[in-house]
């Protein structure tokens, strides 16, 4: 377990600029240890989503070092094993659920990891059951409520058996009951989480260390 004694994620002097010239980070440092949950806050456009995408290599910084699970990650190939072990939950579950049925969406990741059909079916079944979503298995994603979609998207991430979670606005747009279901599911999982949000009221009990993004840098708040 290389990461357990070190950092899940370590950014050193990371600078990132979008193609349109917008500078988001300028020499950002960040440490995320496996025994802590981080609340990432900051105004709109401060780079919360960008930071999550840098963690899994959807974006690459122009300068600085990104270290994930104890190894420096530079090229696309460096991130392949990161993506299996650090799961990112998108803000909009419609971006994540693309298969005709929920079960197939949950099975998509495990198939890509090269598991056999029997193993995939077992993982799918187990993941849906652990979130109390067995009834959704045969349903079509487009006919689910927003809260159900969010849970199904979480299931599709958890089916990869990640060791850490990146959550982008996990409770945005959820009613209090749906938010409660999601947070108690996260609580039961006991996976370290890096959470980007505007509103941590529902997430407070996960025990969060606050990190504030401002002027291209991360500050402990």
């Amino acid at each position: 377990m290389d990461a357990m004694d070190g950092h899940l994620i370590r950014f050193r002097g990371v600078s990132f600029r979008y193609d349109d010239g917008r500078q988001v980070f300028d020499g950002l440092d960040l440490d995320w240890r496996p025994d802590e949950n981080i609340a990432l806050c900051g105004p709109n456009g401060s780079g919360k989503t960008t930071l999550l995408h840098l963690c899994v290599g959807l974006l690459r910084p122009q300068a600085g070092e990104v270290e994930v699970l104890g190894k420096p990650r530079k090229r696309e190939a460096d991130f392949h094993d990161v993506r299996a072990r650090v799961g990112l939950l998108f803000q909009d579950p419609d971006d994540q659920l693309f298969c005709p049925t929920v079960a197939e969406d949950v099975a998509f990741g495990p198939f890509n990891l090269g598991l056999s059909r029997a193993e995939v079916e077992a993982v799918t079944e187990e993941t849906l059951a652990s979130l109390g979503l067995r009834d959704l298995a045969r349903r079509t994603a487009s006919r689910l409520s927003h809260g159900e979609k969010k849970m199904a998207a979480l299931a599709s991430v958890l089916a990869m058996r990640p060791r850490a979670l990146l959550l982008d606005e996990p409770t945005a747009g959820l009613d209090p009951d749906a938010a409660e279901r999601l947070v108690s599911a996260l609580e039961r999982l006991r996976l370290p989480a890096l959470i980007a949000s505007h509103d941590f009221s529902a997430l407070e009990r996960l025990g969060l260390r606050r990190v504030r993004l401002q002027n291209g840098k991360a500050h402990n708040a």
Partner: peptide, 16 residues
């Protein structure tokens, strides 16, 4: 992007 994160490399599988 979401598909890539779940290990998509251009192949689809059918469950049913």
């Amino acid at each position: 992007a979401a598909m890539k994160l779940r290990g998509f490399r251009g192949r689809f599988y059918v469950l049913s």
